[in-house]
Simulated scan of single mutants.
Amino acid sequence: MSGAFLHTVFDIAAWLAAAAALSWLSRRGLQFPAQSFELPYVAALVFGAGLGAYLFGSANLWLSGQSGIARSVEGALAGGIVAVELYKWTAGIRLRTGARFALPLALGIAIGRLGCYFAGLDDFTYGTPTALPWAHDFGDGVLRHPVQLYESAAMGLFALAYVLAVLNRNTFAITNGFYLVLACYGAQRLLWEFIKPYGTLIGPFTLFHLLSLSILLYSAFMLATAPKARPVHERAVA
């Protein structure tokens, strides 16, 4: 099977896993803010994520000396955050609304990155050359870091930890899950960017270094300013 076909298969699997995660969370008796399922909220999220995905993905191609249009998971995440925060600000919504997306996001990225791995060179998500024993030849005879698998493993481990937190009714982890998954994603992505062949923007840092750092700072601020959580059974998750 071609890499493009496998990429599509894993993209579909990622969306299905995200939907299954939402269903599983609802069956655990957790009640999340209704605003995150309202049409204007979803519209802002989809628009921001789509714009960010293509804007940052294509910009990274340009900075790396390549032409064309590309998508970026991190760009979609950043665009979605900005769009939703702007929508909430204009709509006067002060409630934190991202908690329901923590597990779906982690699972979606973990599975979706497997598709990037199987897509090979055309996906432009591989790592720099390495002599490590787990290096992978994507078809051109060069052994490279399979950074797609690194990212998949990191987000898969977060998903497992989050599931355990839900099963143990860990109020802090459930209430602040979205910001915890952002912190995990931003930290691991910042690390992997040092072993990717992307063009730099400022000194040794790529566009995605700066984007990862922005996501990390955002999540750190939201976690530091999180209201004191009451036990999960006493209220809806914010």
Score class of each variant (00 low, 15 high):
E193P: 09
A44W: 00
G186H: 02
G108L: 09
A43Y: 01
F158I: 10
E193W: 10
V82F: 07
G120L: 07
M1W: 04
V181M: 15
G79C: 11
Y87V: 04
F101Q: 00
W89N: 14
L95N: 01
V42E: 00
Y126S: 13
R28Q: 15
A19S: 09
L30P: 00
F178A: 14
I69E: 03
G177Y: 00
F205R: 03
V82E: 01
S26I: 01
W192D: 09
L201F: 08
L107G: 01
L107S: 06
L210P: 08
G75S: 04
A161H: 14
A110S: 12
A187E: 02
H136Q: 07
T8F: 12
A91C: 04
A106F: 01
A187H: 09
F37L: 13
S26E: 13
L86I: 02
Y150E: 07
S72N: 04
I215E: 05
T90I: 11
V163E: 03
V237Q: 06
W89C: 03
E74M: 08
V82M: 08
A44S: 05
A102I: 09
L61C: 00
Y218K: 05
L164Q: 10
Y87P: 03
G75R: 10
G3D: 12
A110T: 10
G203D: 11
S72W: 05
D123E: 14
L180W: 15
V181A: 11
G115Y: 09
N168E: 13
F178E: 10
A173Y: 11
R27V: 10
G79D: 14
V237C: 11
F172M: 06
G139N: 06
S36M: 04
G120D: 06
A19I: 14
N168T: 12
A18L: 02
G52S: 03
P129F: 07
N170A: 14
A173W: 09
L107N: 01
A76Y: 00
L86Y: 01
F138T: 00
G141Q: 10
I202R: 08
D123N: 11
A70H: 03
G127R: 04
L55Y: 02
F10W: 10
L182P: 10
T171K: 01
I174C: 15
R169V: 02
W24E: 14
G57S: 02
A70P: 06
F32D: 07
G139F: 09
I81V: 11
E151Y: 15
E151H: 13
L77V: 13
W134N: 06
V237M: 14
V73N: 05
L180A: 10
T206A: 09
T125F: 06
Y41T: 06
S26D: 13
A13D: 07
V142F: 01
T128Q: 13
Y162W: 10
A159N: 11
S67M: 07
V166S: 05
A44M: 00
G52V: 00
T125D: 05
G75K: 03
F47T: 11
F194G: 09
A49W: 05
R113W: 02
A220Y: 14
D123Q: 06
F47K: 01
W134E: 07
